[in-house]
Write a protein that binds this DNA or RNA. Sequence first.
DNA 1: GCAGAGTTTTAACGGCTGTTCTAACTTTAT
DNA 2: ATAAAGTTAGAACAGCCGTTAAAACTCTGC
Lengths: 200, 200
Amino acid sequence: MTEPRRRRAASAEKVARLLDVTEEIILREGFAAVSSRSVAARAGMNAPLVHYYFPTLDDLFVAVVRRRADQMVERMAAALASAEPLRAWWDLVSDPPGTALFVEFGAAANHRPALRAEVSRVARELRQMQIGKLASILGEYGVDPDEFSPTLVAAAIQGLAVVVVADRAAGYDTAPEEVAATMTRLVTRLAAGRAPRPSG
Amino acid sequence: MTEPRRRRAASAEKVARLLDVTEEIILREGFAAVSSRSVAARAGMNAPLVHYYFPTLDDLFVAVVRRRADQMVERMAAALASAEPLRAWWDLVSDPPGTALFVEFGAAANHRPALRAEVSRVARELRQMQIGKLASILGEYGVDPDEFSPTLVAAAIQGLAVVVVADRAAGYDTAPEEVAATMTRLVTRLAAGRAPRPSG
DNA sequence: GCAGAGTTTTAACGGCTGTTCTAACTTTAT
DNA sequence: ATAAAGTTAGAACAGCCGTTAAAACTCTGC
């Protein structure tokens, strides 16, 4: 039972650090600025060492996506299970850097099969969680599910978050703060008008 | 008045071809696949010739964005002036490659000042056109502008288009076709229930 | 014909890339 | 102490990058 513990622990720390600095570089300088050398430099290592832990840069990217995805799925589950699901959901996605990273990865994944598979997986999982929840609460919120279907609402909220985060990050000056504030108000109002169970 | 016409015309054609192939490469292989050599090869030229017309790659990118932006502004104006503004607007943005290119450029522009300025300009202009139109028609459509403000609706439609186009392009399998169809139905229903002028 | 402007090509520069090989080093197990 | 396993560092590979300089070609105006 005396397996190598210290080594494994040290390695795990380094792997985590590599994932951290990769996210940092992507957010601050963009996807194109990520290289085995740039990551290594910021992590205080050498390029070959990066390839020791992640043989290919794609492996590194996939690991970053996977870690973020797991975290995001967990948080989304908690949000949807909270007292105000819609509001918690919006707070979660309208706040960087999660969505900002998702935007960067979404664009980059378009032409990288390995990345696309990972991003696709988390996108589908999150969407299904959201649609499932919406199906059971839209009625309570007094929203006509025939006019605004769960599928449409889920996509709209995700899209709204992407636009707000992207505009805010790039400074497009399309009033992202106003959009976010209005959305928060709308979501709050919906929650306030919630009927515990429609009498029938 | 006998200015050099043939030469200028030939140059203009080449410039247009460079913009075309640049868009092609971005859509098919991604932003990272664009280089003076790859563009030149697909256009049947040499790398230095690309730099003859566009001294810097950023100049090329800016030209591509500018051309698309002008085209998009023109089409959006026509859509918003049509009989069914909301529907025409949705049809315009939910259809690639315009929005797909916007997504790619949006991500790339995040860390390229020259590009960001151009993208910002068109994003703001389009958004203001949309908000202006929404302010005058949301009431006619029976939408409460206090609950769904023009700013929010405009951002939501743009976000929805981005999500649908991105998901469709990458094959995320988050039912983009269903979302698009539902949105089209919603928009059509809104137009059908339009009141020429609210009595009172 | 010639001059000159406009256009195109060849060659090359330094720099950064992903990745691999190899050797050195460090820790663990015995 | 030693063998083995795990980890790190140095050097180098071919390849592509943006860009430039300079020479060659082509066309226009005279």
